[in-house]
Simulated scan of single mutants.
Amino acid sequence: MIVPFNKPFHTGNELAYISESLKSNKLSGNHHYSKMVKEWMFKKHGLEGVFLTPSCTAALEMGALLLGIGPGDEVIMPSYTFTSTANAVLIFGAKPVFCEIHPKDMNIDVSKIESLITSKTKMIIPIDYAGVPCDIAEIMAIANSYGLAVMHDCAQSYGSLYKNEISGRQAHLSCYSFHDTKNFTCGEGGALVVNEAFRRERASFLMEKGTDRSRMLKGLQEKYSWVDKGSSYLLADILAAMLLSQLQAEDEIKKKRQELVNKYYDWVANLKFAQQLLVCQQDENKSSNGHIFYLILPTRNIRDRFIEKMDLSDIAAHIGYVPLHSSSMGTNLGYKTEDLPITEDLAGRIVRMPIFTGMTDDEFNYTISNATKILSSLLT
């Protein structure tokens, strides 16, 4: 049996919606299906100020542009994140300032943020690793006390809940990913959520190549012209058609993935060597969308050998991120591996287990059966 790391889930409505989009002859952004997606996100989660983008990377860049991030600015973020989080500010001339993560959930360690704030700090970008919400209320409290902006990188957490509200409604800006590897996908896609209403009109200018075309479409003026900076931050409507079919199946997708995560938790709890393994600590204020299940093994060597042996059994288990501070770009920015010892240690021991919405019982049982044998040989 071959168990992939990820497999995109098909709801059954994708082809019908894409076909309707094709028939409309309006395939570019901000047409029928884009509007339907935004209406659905508002109906389901109360999300307003949603701008559908070609990727979460584009959403992060658009957000940084909207907030005026530029040369001389510093932006605090975890080192344990994807490159897009840092590149979104680096391309505008700002400096990413890397913060430690907390072993409880691999998210930014809130207790370490204040010590990194300087007169140059302009923004904080926390992420939701594995779909588990970060401690956003505490982060917002710090940001508000220092007059800082918060752009929440929710690439992995669409549908996750923080205190019974979707993760992404609490920060000034939030960004989602609908990439092929995410729970809800249109192949490539994302969204910037502008929670501050006064920023939304300018966001529409940035999205439309720096033009006020949105005002013309609303009938507020006869022509549109160049009024601001901007780029093409528009998701094609034909991709929005696919995305709508995915978001409409959110409850089904979340239920299946959360069941898999719970089965992984039960499996670990019943291992005789469970005390040698770390897993994400569950929090009653946070409900994950079941994006990832990971283990943190005792050493990097054991982690690497585990992945190699799983691969020999045709089971795809992966490492997490290579910390940005110790990457070649991080080194170019002046960071050293030893600057963030907790991040470096955890990143070297983490392994992500295969999980996807359509994972069968046979695939899951084959995975944990082989994983049990391999871990037993490595840990006992």
Rank of each mutant, 00 (worst) to 15 (best):
D251R: 12
F5S: 03
F178A: 05
G168R: 08
E138I: 02
K44D: 12
L346G: 04
Q281T: 15
L52W: 13
S369I: 04
S145I: 12
I374Y: 04
P126G: 04
C186V: 11
L192Q: 05
P323K: 01
S245G: 09
G334V: 12
G168K: 09
N365T: 11
H325D: 12
M106R: 01
P103M: 09
D135S: 04
Q282D: 11
M353C: 03
D339T: 05
P133I: 13
Y265W: 11
M207A: 04
H10M: 05
S79L: 01
W267K: 00
V3W: 01
A64V: 03
T81P: 06
F198T: 10
L47D: 12
I113Y: 13
R213G: 05
D314Q: 00
I142M: 08
L247F: 06
T185G: 00
A130Y: 01
D266N: 15
L239E: 10
K7C: 10
K309P: 03
S24P: 13
G93D: 14
S326N: 10
I238L: 06
L277F: 11
E20H: 10
F98G: 08
V50Q: 08
D105K: 03
V150I: 11
R303A: 14
S326T: 14
E338I: 13
F92C: 06
I374Q: 09
F178K: 10
D180S: 14
M207C: 04
I113W: 14
D362T: 08
